[in-house]
């Protein structure tokens, strides 16, 4: 499948600070791509480079096959964007802001606009300065979704939204992907990523440290095993890929890397096993591992 967003070796320096340090990112047509990383990892900088609002210091970047710095306008015709920290015009109402932002892209789909305002329960008559953070976010979301685009770039779009509104947001992402659009979703909300994203890229300190489907990422990590058995601890400690072996009453607990699963199970079956649970790592654990990793 053709890549809608393709960045290789992307670098961006602010003085001596390397905000992006050889980032690779590839988003295929029609997918929802999760873009994750700790605060300050360079997510928003990447997005601004992809939008042509900042110029890359090095590396290659293409959005819809075009250079975002030199062809910004052509790309923006096909693109909708929700910034992470939405700042609105203090003296324009929410409705005026929505119509301005969709108008710049060619005009809103009126039916869609009305439905979105209804779904997001947005009071469009309020002035920009009197909206709360969540409501500013809703204005930006309605403006992004009220006109169909082929690429949606969403930078932490649900920060400040309540769970009901988050569900509305997820429904919209599913709608636009069903219509064939591509979505780049930067998010910290892991359940959202798990529900929506086909693939994810995790970045740290301006570099992609992991990419792939969530199943792929899980595969790279270890499962937690809990077995009620009287097998001795040291019988497992010697197996390569088995970690943190310990005993908790009747139960023997250890973590096992994917490649060592067979060996660990073989060792287990040498003694009677009364109960066995194998738990894949939660997303939280997965991300904590990447986010917290030493450089």
């Amino acid at each position: 499948m053709a890549a809608v967003i393709e960045a290789t070796g992307l670098r961006k320096n602010f003085g001596s600070v390397h905000a992006l340090d050889g980032l690779d990112l590839s988003v295929d047509a029609g997918e929802v791509h999760g873009f994750l990383g700790p605060n300050g990892a360079g997510k928003s900088t990447t997005i601004r480079v992809l939008l042509g609002l900042m110029r890359a210091s090095g590396g290659d970047v293409a959005v819809l096959g075009k250079n975002p710095w030199s062809s910004a306008v052509a790309i923006h015709r096909e693109l909708a964007y929700v910034p992470g920290d939405v700042s609105l015009w203090p003296n324009l109402s929410g409705g005026e802001t929505i119509d301005l932002l969709t108008g710049l892209r060619g005009g809103a789909d009126r039916q869609l606009r009305a439905r979105l305002i209804d779904d997001f329960e947005l009071d469009v008559r309020k002035k920009g300065r009197s909206y709360s953070k969540g409501n500013r976010q809703k204005v930006a979301l309605v403006a992004a979704f009220a006109r169909r685009a082929s690429v949606y770039v969403l930078d932490e779009p649900t920060s400040g939204l309540d769970p009901v509104m988050e569900a509305v947001f997820r429904a919209q992402v599913k709608r636009v992907t069903a219509e064939g659009a591509t979505v780049l979703l930067s998010s910290h909300i892991l359940s959202e990523v798990e529900e929506l994203c086909d693939r994810v890229t995790i970045i740290r300190a301006g570099k992609a440290v992991e990419r792939g489907t969530l199943a792929d990422l899980r595969h790279l990590t270890s499962n937690a095993v809990r077995a009620v058995t009287d097998a001795p601890v040291d019988a497992f400690e010697s197996i390569p890929g088995v970690l943190h072996v310990r005993r908790d009453g009747d139960a023997l607990l250890f973590d096992v890397e994917t490649d060592a699963t067979a060996a660990a199970l073989a060792q287990l079956t040498k003694r009677p096993v009364h109960s066995l649970t194998v738990t894949p790592p939660s997303l939280e654990e997965l991300f904590l591992r990447h986010y917290g990793e030493e450089q």
Partner: peptide, 21 residues
């Protein structure tokens, strides 16, 4: 008090916005 604004906007261009501000 701040008056409430219009539900629908008429500004659809960057220069329109500049003038409105």
């Amino acid at each position: 008090r701040e008056r409430s604004g219009r539900a629908e906007g008429r500004i659809t261009s960057s220069i329109g916005l500049a003038w409105r501000l």
